[in-house]
Design a protein around this nucleic acid. Structure first.
Length: 349
DNA sequence: GAGCCGTGGAC
DNA sequence: TGTCCAAGGCT
């Protein structure tokens, strides 16, 4: 690992921030100001999610719930509807829990430190550092995927970034480098660098504003950084989705358990089956609806089941009209199932 | 510490 | 089509 002296550190800060002031993404909506609420919302949305995807969600969310008090007082249904399609839905629930914590437990006074901010639900080391530096000017590195990528190359850090303990290595290596006068800008500059000249694939190091500080590039080994072990492939799982209508044309839905994948969301009744041979009911489609999560690959076969007049609904089941369905926040996989149903209707007409 | 937790884009 | 993601946190 490279070890920079104070002169190098000072020069790096200067060059990085000069570039950031000229070419940073200053127009991003959450960079209009440093209101901790706006920073919190944006940071939660940006966890494992692309900037381009977040922009629309962020603007809509802030228009609907412009202050932390608004979010704390909002129905959870509204928060989830605003989050619909963004994924990792526990972030939305944690975001509102964090707002309630600040408003109700802290009397509206935000924690302003790296340590204190981690008491907010959904706020871990990265997000706490981001808020602390951007909103409260605390001098801490916001070690995220961009930092792993950028500094592994600059400093030739060989630790596996897939391992949790590696975060500490980066934090301690970068902490002395953060600009004490502009910590928030420093952190955001690294993020901008990490998605442009120093992006994961096909980086443009030759034109990078910090090329001179890039030890991996200097040694011709930039493609070896960051060091990262591979993830496992998603497990293939076969499901059937039950399609049942009542006499009013409403669809049978089932609410998922309060924990686990898509917790609390309403979908068609889903049941895992060993294979396509074991489907219950009339198979409706030649091809399954395929939906891939981070760790699971669902192949879902639509099957028709008649509405048994004598059968009571389970406690977690309900008939939903089209209006009901549109009012609810539904996960993407359910939207896919509905789209496939609509395709079948269109074909049959 | 390893697995869980969504989605859409790039190649 | 498959693979690897993209501003991580929770258990």
């Amino acid at each position: 690992m490279e070890n920079w002296n104070s002169k190098t550190i000072a020069a790096f800060r200067r060059d990085l921030l000069a570039w950031y002031d000229q070419e940073g993404r200053s127009t991003l909506p959450w960079r209009q100001d440093t209101d901790p609420y706006r920073v919190l919302v944006s940071e939660l949305m940006l966890q494992q999610t692309r900037v381009d995807t977040v922009i629309t969600y962020f603007n809509r969310f802030m228009a609907a719930l412009p202050t932390v008090d608004d979010l704390a007082a909002a129905p959870e249904d509204q928060v989830l509807k605003l989050w619909e399609g963004l994924g990792y839905y526990s972030r939305a629930k944690n975001l509102q829990r964090a707002a309630k914590y600040v408003v109700n437990d802290l009397d509206g006074v935000w924690p302003q430190t790296y340590e204190g901010l981690q008491d907010l639900p959904g706020v871990g080391p990265y997000t706490a550092a981001a808020i602390a530096s951007i909103a409260f000017n605390q001098v801490v590195p916001a070690v995220d995927g961009n930092f792993f990528r950028v500094f592994s190359r600059l400093l030739k850090i060989n630790d596996d970034i897939a391992q949790p303990k590696t975060r500490k290595v980066f934090y301690e290596a970068i902490a002395p480098i953060v600009d004490p006068d502009r910590p928030g800008d420093f952190n955001q500059a690294i993020m901008d660098l990490g998605t442009t000249y120093m992006k994961a694939k096909n980086p443009d190091t030759l034109n990078s504003p910090v090329k001179a500080y890039n030890a991996a590039f200097r040694d011709g080994v930039e493609d070896q950084y960051p060091v990262k072990t591979k993830k496992k492939k998603p497990v293939r799982q076969v499901y059937q989705a039950q399609v049942t209508y009542d006499d009013q044309g409403r669809l049978l839905y089932e609410q998922r358990p309060e924990t686990g994948l898509l917790a609390g969301f309403w979908t068609l009744p889903l049941k895992q089956v060993d294979s396509i041979e074991n489907l219950e009911g009339q198979q409706l489609t030649i091809k399954p609806v395929v939906h891939i999560f981070s760790h699971r690959r669902w192949e879902i076969w639509l099957v028709a089941l008649d509405n048994d007049k004598t059968a009571d609904l389970a406690a977690n089941q309900a008939w939903l009209s089209v209006a009901d369905q549109e009012a609810l926040a539904l996960p993407k996989v359910q939207h896919k199932l509905l789209a496939r149903l609509k395709e079948m209707d269109d074909v049959s007409q």
